[in-house]
Design a protein around this nucleic acid. Structure first.
Length: 271
DNA sequence: ATGGGCACCTGGCTGC
DNA sequence: TGCAGCCAGGTGCCCA
């Protein structure tokens, strides 16, 4: 489900409800997330005051006065802000009940999402330590892309989705960024010119920023903290548009599978 | 190191 | 109507 724009939209939605609040109670209905929540998870979090809510790649970082809650939404997860007495529905696995009377509720049908509460610097956590730069930062640019792509045989789409290349680019935005850059998703990363890498880096930044602006992409179940979908789906050029005419040139959009994931591209606009 | 594939899990849709 | 089969916004880990 969520790629960087959806996670960032969620961050912006939950931050006002969490920041400065104390977590009064933690309700866990299902511990078996991607990694089972340890015994003592609730006790460690309860009573903590939230300082701020950050993000690294697709991880949300709820920083408290005594540790950081690291949340990943997996494929189907969402966090919503609700009145604490709202009855729980299917797949409502965890509630953070706040002293304001609100709660932040984690729902995740497929349970690929995760939560970790860690003391100390969350960026040193095993899951975050080796991540590439943020796509919207200056540390990610065409030069870095070009340097890292040298001699790599992987298809550029898989290369872009590798969190050691750049973070936050998932299956939708990889296809969309390559369309905007005019580069075929099947090109070997090592055969990209410096100019192509510059176009790709710019396209990644642009497509993510554009998606954040309209609250991300909802294909099936993504909702933001207010339960609302994102509206970027209407702006997708190729994703899930196999056989439909390219919005630029009219050529039917093509589909293939790379790394067991669907890829979409226009054979005329992308070389 | 790199590349390729599997695993984790539920639900919705398609086609017989 | 029922059900098998396939697909889905991610990513850690195992193998060659």
């Amino acid at each position: 489900m969520p790629e960087l724009p959806e996670v960032e939209t969620t961050r912006r939605g939950i931050a006002p409800a969490l920041e400065g609040r104390t977590i009064r109670e933690v309700r866990v209905r299902e511990r078996r997330l991607r990694w089972a929540l340890p015994r003592g998870f609730e006790a460690e979090l309860a009573g903590r005051r939230v300082l701020d809510v950050g993000r690294r790649a697709k991880y949300l970082l709820v920083r408290t006065d005594a540790g950081t809650l690291i949340v990943h939404l997996g494929m189907s997860g969402s966090l919503r802000v609700l009145p604490a007495d709202t009855p729980a529905l299917a797949h409502d696995h965890v509630d953070l009940v706040l002293d304001s009377g609100a709660c932040v509720r984690f729902n995740d049908p497929r349970r690929f999402g995760s939560m970790h509460f860690v003391a100390g610097d969350p960026h040193e956590h095993k899951l975050l330590r080796t991540l590439a730069p943020e796509p919207l930062s200056d540390a990610f640019d065409g030069a870095r892309l070009h340097a890292r792509a040298r001699r790599r045989k992987v298809a550029v789409k898989l290369f872009l989705m590798d969190a050691r290349t750049v973070v936050g680019v998932g299956n939708i935005y990889a296809s969309e960024a390559l369309f905007r850059a005019g580069v075929s998703p099947r090109r070997a990363a090592g055969r990209l010119s410096r100019e192509a890498c510059e176009r790709i880096a710019k396209a990644v930044k642009d497509v993510l920023a554009d998606a954040i602006r309209v609250g991300g992409t909802t294909l099936r179940d993504y909702v933001n903290a207010d339960g609302m979908p994102g509206y970027f789906r209407q702006k997708l050029y190729v994703y899930e548009r196999a056989g439909e005419p390219c919005r630029v040139c009219g050529t039917p959009v093509r589909h293939c599978v790379q790394g067991q994931r669907s890829t979409y591209w226009c054979p005329h606009c992308q070389k």
